[in-house]
Amino acid sequence: MHVRLEPQGRQLTIAGRRRVGDLVRSLGLVTGTVMVIRGDDLLTDDDMVEDDEAIELRAVISGGAR
């Protein structure tokens, strides 16, 4: 599957079918800090992503002294 990390703009290819929760953790990300986007949909931890699909992991944390 193709995984795009935003806002860094990094692209990754991961082989096989994965559960969203496992995928997020295997990339070293903390759950609740990224939205998992497939097309117009958001995915939850127990959704599956197939090998031939593309998803975006978009960070939700913004920073700076606001």
Binding site: E6, P7, R58, I61, S62, G63, G64, A65
Partner: peptide, 14 residues
């Protein structure tokens, strides 16, 4: 806007 302010890198708040 998904990009971050360039000054936020390394901010203590993060």
């Amino acid at each position: 806007v998904v990009e971050e302010c360039p000054n936020s890198h390394g901010a203590t708040q993060l």
